[in-house]
Design a protein around this nucleic acid. Structure first.
Length: 399
RNA sequence: GGUGAGUUACUCAAGCGGCCAACGAGGGCAGACUGUAAAUCUGCUGACUAUGUCUUCGAAGGUUCGAAUCCUUCACUCACCA
């Protein structure tokens, strides 16, 4: 039992620091039911969660199954500083209202995955506001600039002569201090958080908390492009609140290679099952498309349910396999004689009439399933289906 | 504070008086091929009912028949020195 739990916990992890401690905690839980705490911090800078976040959340869920109590830390205070991780320039500072609003939407979405009864949501402003100048200064004495500059991104920026604000030095310190305050047993985060996560250990020792948190790091999930990390600003993400059909379609659009990565980090399948599928595909007994469909179904099911997942698949197959029209399209009404390019823009299929013209010239536009070749066409009264490319449809009523 | 370099479209990056809506690369979009995959090949990639017009090359002025290109001021970034 313990063995299995540990396997589930270490699955997909990039690195575990102080693995023995994790083993000890889990073993003790199965011996006498003693629980332990697992901390994970979220920066309420963006409001919507995407699959990248769920990698961590799912890992937390696994801990919850095996005696972990989750400390879901909303970094409302630290968000006012801005985590410098991975940034090549100083971050913008958010205002309090936005942060609070974001934190709220976060919480609503998080319990799609986490067990609410085993989760404690905490805000670090609770204790950081109280810390005061004196406490702050005391905190800064526990670390030195030389070591701070060892951190990758700081080092690069320092060498490149780019600005590093003093407040950015405080970020890791404060994140580490959170662990002191929460007396966390384990903290999990992405590999890019290593420095900050280790700071928690350092500070717990410095403050004589009586334990040093184990650190578990998850790999960073690549976005739809398969190269850069999934993030909202790069527009390569699948949001967990997106429509079933969008989640389904986006999942199918990832590359075969990336699909395995998603399987490993996101699916419930065991590693053996995944290895088997991989082999099947290699030997040609299993079509990669099928494997991908299953992944897409699993994801939609997780955030909605099986029925909607099946519907999403049917819808998708209709449109792209059978070449049928999607069931629900954006619908607009326009005046008679409208220029087709204008109609395309009005329907939201094209950003400008110029772009519409170009697409028509390239045979990318269809009217009632037939390619349009005349970019000066005007629509007479009636109902039309407009299509741009393979995936953009709209219904147009011309009066 | 001093000296020098720079600021070009989504990003990087050419252009240094007319041939510039601006080379090239990446990205994006579309077409072919497919499994709405990858790879590959091709086209497009400021706006406008459009062989023309308008707005764009950090900001504002100026020189000129004509400026992304020259001059002035301002803002910002970087480098070296203090």
């Amino acid at each position: 039992m313990v063995q299995q739990a540990l396997e589930e916990i270490s699955r997909g992890t990039a690195e575990i620091i102080d693995k023995e401690r994790v083993e000890k905690l889990v073993t003790r839980y199965y011996d006498d039911g003693t629980t332990y705490t697992v901390k994970a911090g979220f920066d309420p800078t963006g409001a919507d969660l995407h699959l990248g976040h769920t990698v961590l959340l799912q890992k937390l869920r696994v801990f919850q199954k095996h005696g972990g109590r989750v400390q879901l830390l909303i970094g409302d205070f630290t968000a006012t500083i801005g985590d410098p991780t991975g940034k090549s320039e100083t971050r913008k500072i958010l205002d309090t209202d936005t942060i609070l609003a974001n934190a709220k939407t976060y919480q609503e979405q998080v319990f799609n995955i986490l067990d609410e009864s085993k989760t404690e949501v905490v805000f670090n402003s609770t204790w950081l506001n109280k810390l005061g100048a004196a406490g702050m200064v005391a905190l800064t004495t526990l670390f030195n600039v030389a070591r701070m500059l060892e951190r990758d991104d700081f080092e690069k920026r320092y060498r490149a002569g780019q600005s590093i604000s003093i407040s950015e030095f405080l970020y890791p310190l404060l994140q580490g201090y959170d662990s002191v305050e929460l007396q966390s047993d384990i903290e999990i985060g992405g590999t890019d958080q290593k420095f900050n996560l280790l700071m928690g250990r350092h500070l717990q020792r410095a403050y004589n908390v009586g334990k040093e948190q184990a650190v578990l790091m998850m790999p960073i999930l690549e976005g739809l492009d398969g190269v850069q990390k999934m993030s909202k600003s790069l527009q390569n993400y699948i949001g967990i609140t997106e429509e079933p059909k969008d989640i389904y379609a986006k999942t199918l659009s990832i590359s075969d290679e990336l699909m395995w990565r998603y399987y490993e980090l996101l699916s419930e399948n065991t590693l053996e099952e995944i290895a088997q599928m991989k082999q099947g595909v290699q030997m040609g007994t299993l079509h990669p498309k099928t494997v991908k469909e299953n992944l897409a179904l699993e994801l939609v099911t997780r955030f909605y349910n099986v029925e909607l997942a099946t519907l999403a698949k049917e819808e998708f197959d209709n449109v792209f396999k059978e070449n049928l029209l999607p069931a629900d399209m954006n619908e607009i009404e326009v005046e008679e004689g409208i220029w087709i390019c204008k109609a395309l823009v009005d329907a939201g299929l094209e950003p400008s009439t110029s772009q519409a013209r170009r697409d028509i010239k390239q045979n990318a536009v269809s009217l009632n399933q037939e390619k349009v070749s005349d970019d000066a066409l005007n629509l007479s009264a009636g109902e039309y289906i407009l299509q741009v490319g393979k995936r953009k449809f709209a219904k147009v009523k011309v009066r």
